[in-house]
Design a protein around this nucleic acid. Structure first.
Lengths: 204, 204
DNA sequence: CAGGGCAATGAATAGTGATTCACTCGACCC
DNA sequence: GGGTCGAGTGAATCACTATTCATTGCCCTG
C-alpha cells in the first residue's frame, strides 16, 4: 500500500503548483513571446522559485513542450468540432479556416510564439507534430471531398499543408487592414484553393 | 587625397576575403543549417581566424543578414524574371510557383535555414523583409490580373501572402512523395487560389 | 515534543558561443 | 635599413541562462 497523506503537501496541491507553472509559462509567451520566457521569469510569474520548476519538469524544453502541446491541442479540438458540423466539404473547410483565423487574430503574440518564433530544437519538433495535426485535420476533409466527388482531384495532403501555411503566413505577417477583410479573404482563398471540380461530371 | 596602394593587402584582396567569409557562411547553412554556423565554423571554412570575421562584419548577425539578403535577392531576381515573361496572369503565377518550388526542392537545408529555422532576432527581421518582397512579387501580378479583369475580386496582398506561405509550408515539411507531384500540386493550388472569376462576365 | 522526511528555495555553477584585444608579421615608405 | 602601418590571429573573456544542490523550514508521525 502506498502511504498517503503523509506529507503536508498533498498530491492535489502538487498538481496545483504544476498547473500554476504551466499556466505561467503559457501566459508569459502569450503576453511577451517565447523570447521573454526565461525559467526565472516563468517561476516568478508562477510564484515559485526557479529551482521548483525543475521539481516538476526535467527541463525548460519539456515544460514548453507541454505548454505548446496543450495550446495546440485545445485549438485543434475546437476547430475539429467546428469542422465536424454538417455541411458541404467546402462549407466545413470555410468554417474551419474562419474559426482558426478569428482565434489567431485574437491572440497574435501567442500565435507567433506557437507557430513562428525562434525556439528550442525540442520545441521545433513539437511544432512539427502539431503542424502535422493541423494538416491532417484539413487533409481528412479534403480526402472526403475528393472521394465523394465534391472536389476536383487535388492532393489532399499537399493542399492541406498549403492551406495551413497560407493561413499562417497571412495571419502572422501584416497587422495591416481590418480583421474582417482578412478573414473573408482567407475563406475565399481556401474555398478557391480546393478547386471547383466536379469529377462526377468532368473527371480529370 | 586618399593615399592608395599603400598596404600590401589591396582592396581587391580584402574584398576577396570578405567574399570568402560570406560564401563560407552561405555554404555552411546550405550544408548543415544555421544551427551549425558558429562564427568559429564559418571562419574555419573561410580559412581565416575567428577574429578576422570581425574585421569585416560588426557582428555575426550582420554577416548573416548579408548572407540572407543576398540569397533571397538572387532568388527573387530569378523568379521575377520568369514571372515577367509574357502570358496570362495565371500562367505567370504558375511559372513563378513552379520555379520557386523547383529551386527550393533542390536545396532543402538552405531553404529551411532561410525561411524557417530558428535564428537571431536580427535575422528574423531580415526574413520579414524578404517575405514582404516575395509577397509583393506575387501581389503585383495579382493586382494586375484583378485590374485587368482576368481574376476575381481577390485581395492581392492577402492572397499573395497565403500563396507564399502555402508554398513554404508544403515545400518545407514532408519530404514524402515525388517532387514532380508536389510541384504539380502547388501549381494547381495557386491556380485555384487566385480564382476563376471573370468579372467582365460574372461580377461577384 | 522530538525526529525525520520532503518540497521549496535561490545563490552558485556550468556550458555555450559570440566578441575582444594584445600581439605577430609582412610589406611599403623614406 | 629602420620605422610605421594595419590586417590577421586565436586564446581569453564576457554574457547569458539553464540547471544544480546544499540548505531551510514546514508538518506529519510516534
Amino acid at each position: 500500500m502506498v502511504r498517503r497523506r503523509k506529507a503536508s503537501v498533498t498530491d492535489e496541491e502538487k498538481a496545483r503548483t504544476r498547473e500554476a507553472i504551466v499556466a505561467a509559462a503559457h501566459d508569459q509567451i502569450a503576453q511577451d513571446g517565447y523570447a521573454s520566457a526565461s525559467v526565472i521569469a516563468v517561476a516568478q510569474r508562477a510564484g515559485v522559485a526557479t529551482g521548483s520548476v525543475y521539481r516538476y519538469f526535467p527541463s525548460k524544453a519539456e515544460l514548453f513542450v507541454e505548454v505548446f502541446r496543450r495550446a495546440a491541442g485545445r485549438e485543434l479540438e475546437l476547430i475539429a468540432e467546428i469542422v465536424d458540423q454538417p455541411g458541404s466539404v467546402r462549407e466545413r473547410v470555410g468554417a474551419g479556416v474562419e474559426a482558426f483565423a478569428r482565434r489567431a487574430l485574437a491572440a497574435p503574440t501567442l500565435v507567433y510564439a506557437l507557430m513562428a518564433e525562434p525556439v528550442d530544437p525540442a520545441l521545433e519538433a513539437e511544432r512539427l507534430a502539431s503542424k502535422g495535426a493541423w494538416r491532417e485535420l484539413f487533409a481528412g476533409l479534403l480526402r472526403e471531398g475528393v472521394e465523394a466527388g465534391d472536389l476536383a482531384a487535388i492532393d489532399p495532403e499537399i493542399t492541406a499543408a498549403a492551406i495551413v501555411g497560407g493561413m499562417q503566413e497571412a495571419l502572422l505577417l501584416p497587422p495591416g487592414a481590418g480583421h474582417e477583410a482578412l478573414v473573408a479573404s482567407l475563406i475565399q482563398f481556401s474555398s478557391n484553393a480546393i478547386g471547383h471540380g466536379d469529377p462526377s461530371r468532368q473527371p480529370a
